[in-house]
Design a protein around this nucleic acid. Structure first.
Length: 556
RNA sequence: CGGGGUGUGGCGCAGAUGGCUAGCGCGCUUGGUUUGGGACCAAGAGGCCCUGGGUUCAAAUCCCAGCACCCCGACCA
């Protein structure tokens, strides 16, 4: 491909509202174009990468017996009512009406389609197990699309569904797919970890996430290098004691008179609640002022951790400083107080806290984070040290992106959609299901987050849009001729090459090459022609080599 | 859904106490000179100043409403 003819040019500056590295680099380099928040066009370069990713996914899914199909995106509403998800997923469903005023849903996922489909074709135990997958666009009305292509409203996903005669068979296959998933991420040049997933609609025991380590990740994960084990820090902390009943609803905030002592046990006793229901607030003195720290009543803030996070020495505020800030010892709360607050993850999922009202002997009941008070950031602030459940080593804290997840669905959808089979004894049995998702477009963004430097993207070889980037320097005709010869030669040898044949200045062309990030850069210039050589430079290395034209193939 | 910010050629921005023909940089077109890390000269093209309503002799600029985008939270198979 000649760059002069490629649709989608590089830009000197990234769009001002690009919020993440992947959004900046991918738009600046001409891989994607944003239509609206969370909805992107894939330009030729971007689509090339996406196709490579899809091919890797396809190969690995085929290798574990997956069969590719293509299901519709337009779903009649009734099948969503049948599983109850018309209601439970209502906020994120895109809806439309068809002829005769019929209601439709744009598919956010495909259990509702694939289960009835399987029911049509699966009758006997001989038809099982079977795994079906597709690579397709999903639609989810995210309340806040963000992070470039990492969280979109329309996005690409590989979703696979497996069907089994019993749990044992599902368990076996689930492990096989887990391994296949790790292969996919490794082949895409990423460092992936399996993590036990958060509780959700389908219970945490039966789901795993795949975390990819990158500095730009949205989640903080606890990782074990050795076992490739990961755990989301929020889950780790919440899990250490599963306190919050899942069905508790947020109750209205209430201020009550509370002539109690100032300690947590006295507080808990007075309100007749467990200590973990108390929102504990500690105020620290920093160089630049005061900082409130919220934590669950039964836990302790680790000053050491706080200091290592803030990178400065801190101390608890003195009595005088309390008065100065209008704080009442024992009755502090983040509600209605004018100092910044951060919080430990432990409070994130607890509802209806008891907390002080910043007045003597006055408390708030039913305080909820987000609704009644806001914290700047959630952090890990306790002494809690977590170890790998497999090898017992201490887990390290890293930022990560969730790039895939797998679930044991069990019989939820088979029941709703009447998916049964006849066993060897001729008895009717229910089918057990698993489902397995990888966001392929998110994966593309994740690769950029993980593989870039200050000049641009550094594509791992397996997913690079081209194998080589041929660049001419200088407007010399001889240079163009020689480059054209090399271009033809490479193509004859099945090398996917992008040929920057433009008459642009050296700086622009080299900067563009760095930005686009193709793994190998080849330069033809007056200098190289004199030496009958080509300059070869790998994107991830600083050094360039001059190699004889005939040897070029060895370097790609 | 709460709080904050921003909407001006394709991109990045200036103009805001109402007032002349709405500017600048990048990009684009034409011609010329250049070419090893974002070149230079000259001549051009390109604008419902987010939308709707209002105030006014006069609105990019003031007022009201709405929409979109971004950030921090809430939410998140």
């Amino acid at each position: 491909m000649k760059y002069s003819q490629l649709f989608g040019k590089t830009k000197l500056e990234a769009p001002a509202d690009a919020d993440s590295v992947n959004a900046k680099l991918l738009t600046q380099a001409g891989f994607v174009d944003r239509l609206i928040a969370g909805v992107y066009t894939f330009l030729p370069l971007g689509l090339r990468v996406l196709k490579k990713i899809n091919e890797i996914i396809r190969e690995e899914m085929n290798a574990v017996g997956g069969q590719e199909i293509a299901m519709p995106s337009l779903h009649p509403r009734e099948i969503w009512q049948q599983t109850g998800r018309d209601k439970t997923m209502d906020p994120i469903l895109y809806r439309t009406k068809g002829a005769g005023d019929r209601d439709f849903v744009f598919g956010p996922s495909h259990e509702e389609i694939v289960t009835p489909l399987a029911a049509k074709y699966v009758q006997s135990y001989k038809d099982l197990p079977v795994a079906l997958y597709q690579i397709q666009t999903k639609f989810r009305n995210e309340p806040r699309a963000k992070s470039g292509i990492l969280r979109g409203r329309e996005f690409g996903m590989k979703d696979m569904y497996s069907f089994h005669t019993d749990d044992a068979d599902l368990d076996k296959y689930y492990e096989v797919v887990k391994t296949a998933y790790l292969k996919v991420f490794t082949r895409c040049g990423l460092d992936a970890y399996v993590s036990e997933a958060s509780g959700g609609a389908f219970t945490d025991k039966y789901s795993h996430e795949f975390a990819v380590r990158t500095q730009a990740g949205e989640d903080t994960m606890l990782l074990c290098e050795k076992c490739k084990y990961a755990q989301n820090i929020e889950i780790a902390e919440a899990k250490f004691d599963d306190l919050q009943p899942a069905d508790e609803e947020e109750a209205p905030l209430k201020k009550v008179n509370a002539p109690r002592g100032i300690t947590i046990p006295e507080n808990a006793a007075f309100h007749k609640v467990p200590e973990w229901k108390i929102l504990k607030t500690v105020v620290y003195k920093l160089k630049g002022g005061f900082l409130g720290v919220c934590i669950r009543g039964d836990l302790k803030v680790s000053q050491k951790r706080l200091e290592s996070i803030l990178k400065e020495k801190v101390r608890v505020a003195t009595k005088e400083e309390f008065v100065e800030n209008g704080l009442i010892m024992g009755f502090i709360s983040p509600i209605g107080i004018n100092i910044p607050f951060i919080a430990d993850h432990s409070i994130k999922h607890i509802k209806n806290f008891v907390t002080g009202a910043n007045e003597l002997n006055e408390d708030y009941l039913n305080a909820n984070v987000g609704r009644d008070f806001v914290v700047r950031e959630f952090m890990h602030l306790t002494d809690l040290e977590l170890v790998c459940p497999k090898c017992g080593n201490k887990l390290s804290e890293e930022k990560a992106v969730e790039a895939g997840n797998i679930f044991k669905l069990g019989t939820k959808y088979s029941k709703d959609c009447n998916l049964y089979f006849t066993d060897k004894e001729g008895k009717k049995q229910i089918v057990t299901m698993g489902c397995y998702g990888i966001g392929n477009t998110r994966l593309l963004g994740t690769i950029v987050e993980a593989c870039h430097d200050e000049h641009g993207i550094i594509w791992p070889k397996a997913v690079a849009p081209f194998a080589a980037h041929l660049v001419t320097l200088g407007g010399d005709e001889k240079v163009q001729e020689e480059a054209q010869k090399l271009y033809d030669y490479l193509r004859e040898n099945d090398i996917d090459v992008l040929f920057d044949d433009r008459d642009e200045s050296t700086g622009k062309k080299l900067n563009d090459a760095d930005l686009i990030g193709i793994p190998v850069r080849l330069i033809i210039s007056k200098k190289t022609i004199e030496k009958k050589c080509v300059e070869v430079k790998r994107r991830d290395s600083k050094e360039a080599d001059l190699v004889p034209v005939n040897d070029v193939l060895k370097f790609i």
